[in-house]
Simulated assay, not measured.
Amino acid sequence: MNTLDPDRDWFVGVRYVAQRFGQQIDWQGLQRLKAQVVVGSEDTANDIQISARDALYADGVNDTGSNRVERASFLNGLHRKAGVDSRLDGVQGAARCAAHVQRAVDAFFRAL
């Protein structure tokens, strides 16, 4: 997960994003967003950890939590720290299934 941390290299953080992509991060633009982070309360499998032997591994890549519930909470905190109007919706009893969290997503968009 990208941490929006300017002190960590891409993709764990956002240092050197402008050099890599030719575009600065629009921090003020982020602060105008409304965001929803939604996760099922039972989405607790730890199958999202990236092994140090994996080509995608980078220092700090697993620092955001051991499962999707922990990472969703971490991501929501990152959004809020960056000034994004973000909310975390945990759907009780749901695991990793988009259909089970759809009502929460629909409610978020209806409220916009």
Rank of each mutant, 00 (worst) to 15 (best):
G13F: 03
P6M: 04
D7C: 07
Q23F: 02
V14M: 06
R20T: 14
V39E: 04
F21K: 04
T44G: 07
R32M: 12
A45Y: 09
Q24H: 13
R15V: 00
A45V: 11
D7V: 09
T44I: 14
Y16C: 11
G40I: 11
D43A: 12
Q19K: 12
L30F: 13
G40N: 09
E42R: 10
G22F: 02
V37C: 05
W27T: 04
A35N: 08
D43T: 11
I48D: 15
Q24M: 08
W10M: 12
S41L: 09
Q36V: 15
I48C: 15
V12Y: 02
V39K: 03
D47Q: 07
L33T: 10
L30E: 10
G22Y: 02
V38I: 03
R20W: 03
V12F: 02
L30I: 09
W27V: 05
D47V: 12
I48K: 12
D43I: 12
G29V: 01
Q23Y: 05
F11K: 03
K34N: 12
R8T: 07
V39R: 05
L33N: 10
W27H: 07
K34T: 13
Q24W: 07
I48P: 09
S41F: 04
D7E: 12
L30V: 11
Y16L: 08
V14C: 08
P6R: 03
Q31I: 06
R15C: 01
Q23R: 13
W27M: 05
R8E: 13
A35C: 13
D9P: 08
G22W: 02
W10D: 12
R8M: 13
K34M: 08
E42C: 10
D47S: 13
T44F: 00
R20I: 14
V12M: 01
F11D: 08
V38G: 01
Q28I: 07
V14Y: 02
G13E: 01
S41K: 13
Q28G: 08
A45C: 07
L33S: 14
D26W: 07
A18Q: 10
R15G: 00
V17E: 12
D26H: 07
F11G: 00
G29D: 02
D43R: 11
I25S: 05
V37W: 02
V14L: 08
R8Y: 05
P6Y: 03
Q23A: 12
G29Q: 00
D43W: 10
W27K: 01
D9V: 01
I48R: 14
A45F: 11
V38W: 03
T44P: 00
G22S: 06
R32N: 15
V38C: 03
V37R: 02
T44V: 15
V38L: 03
L30W: 11
Q31C: 06
G22T: 04
A18L: 04
I25V: 15
S41E: 15
T44Q: 08
Q36D: 06
Q19Y: 00
G22I: 02
R15T: 01
Q36M: 12
I48M: 15
R8N: 10
G22C: 04
L30S: 11
W27G: 04
A35W: 05
R8K: 14
D43E: 14
D47C: 09
A45W: 09
Q31N: 06
L30Y: 11
I25L: 10
R20H: 13
Q19S: 14
Q36F: 02
G13R: 01
Q36W: 00
